[in-house]
């Protein structure tokens, strides 16, 4: 009896109205959240562009920093950051992907491999300054790399390795089992299966994690300060063993100066940072698109 009442046409239509209302409420809330994010972002970007755009010219891009606002430039930091990104990715991606493959495909489900899981997960959550101090102790001091780009890139590699390993493992795990099965059934060895099936299928996801890592590398300041990247540097680095500075450090230095002009120059620095980020994002997205695309 009760069931017939609950399922009567009238009761269902009343509840249908309520369900539709719930959906509308949700959409409104979601839209407001989006507006809040957009508003903050536009506010930030517009204040940066309003202040910084007038300082952004060729002279600014090609000059070393100077005491005089009209002569100062960002060139060494721009080059330093570019080096840092390229080198860090070149170090971290092969090592990270290889480790992930080993953990996922070869290490089995032993206790050691499971505890490694937890350790790597924890490493991803460690504050970046700790990596900086570790880099200072190991790379700068112990390995005598000095305050070089190489030391910086190695430190940042350590920082992004856990993220790359974790996301690559996820990507590898998401490869449909049927594809592995048929590869083995056709006589492939494990390595052939990884090389021709697992990596191509998961490359798109791996590329996404690399793009996120680039964002992390560009944005990091603390570990670079910890290993002693210089804030005032007149010369551009010529090799990976030279001292360097990075955009974030340069921006931070300008912000801490008393003159109002330098605050605006810092804004110009932020614009350059955003452009560099956009540039590497574009490269990363192109790689990801190619990886996901069907190959002729």
């Amino acid at each position: 009896m009760a069931k017939e009442v609950i399922l009567s046409a009238k009761a269902i239509s009343i509840r249908a109205k309520r369900r539709k209302l719930a959906e509308k409420v949700f959409v409104v809330i979601a839209f407001i959240s989006l507006l809040a994010v957009l508003f903050t972002l536009i506010q930030l970007l517009s204040s940066v562009f309003v202040k910084g755009l007038k300082w952004l010219d060729l002279q600014f891009l090609t000059s070393p920093p100077s005491r005089f606002p009209e002569k100062t430039g960002i060139y060494p930091a721009l080059i330093g950051s570019t080096w840092l990104i390229v080198l860090t990715i070149a170090i971290a991606v092969p090592i990270g992907v290889a480790s992930a493959i080993f953990l996922e495909e070869y290490s089995g489900k032993s206790r050691i491999s499971r505890s490694l899981d937890i350790i790597i997960g924890n490493l991803a959550g460690i504050p970046s300054i700790i990596y900086g101090i570790f880099g200072l102790a190991i790379f700068v001091r112990y390995l005598h790399l000095g305050r070089s780009i190489l030391a910086g890139a190695l430190t940042l590699s350590l920082l992004i390795l856990p993220v790359i390993i974790i996301s690559t493992r996820e990507a590898i795990r998401a490869v449909p089992r049927g594809l592995r099965e048929i590869s083995y059934a056709l006589g492939a060895t494990k390595w052939q299966t990884i090389r021709y099936v697992v990596l191509p299928v998961s490359s798109r996801w791996i590329a996404t994690s690399v793009i996120l890592s680039i964002a992390r590398v560009i944005g990091e300041t603390a570990p670079l300060i910890a290993i002693g990247a210089l804030s005032f540097i007149m010369t551009t680095p010529r090799s990976v063993f030279d001292p360097f500075t990075a955009l974030t450090i340069q921006i931070y230095t300008w912000l801490s100066k008393p003159q109002q002009d330098f605050k605006e120059i810092a804004a110009a620095g932020i614009i350059v940072l955003l452009l560099l980020f956009g540039f590497f994002m574009a490269i990363g997205s192109a790689v990801r698109y190619r990886a996901g695309k069907f190959k002729e």
Partner: peptide, 20 residues
């Protein structure tokens, strides 16, 4: 791997590789 080269296999669901 040599044994499997002599034995073909087809599964329940078609499972072509993502390629041509």
């Amino acid at each position: 791997t040599i044994l499997r080269a002599r034995i073909g296999m087809v599964f329940q669901r078609p499972n072509p590789f993502p390629g041509s």
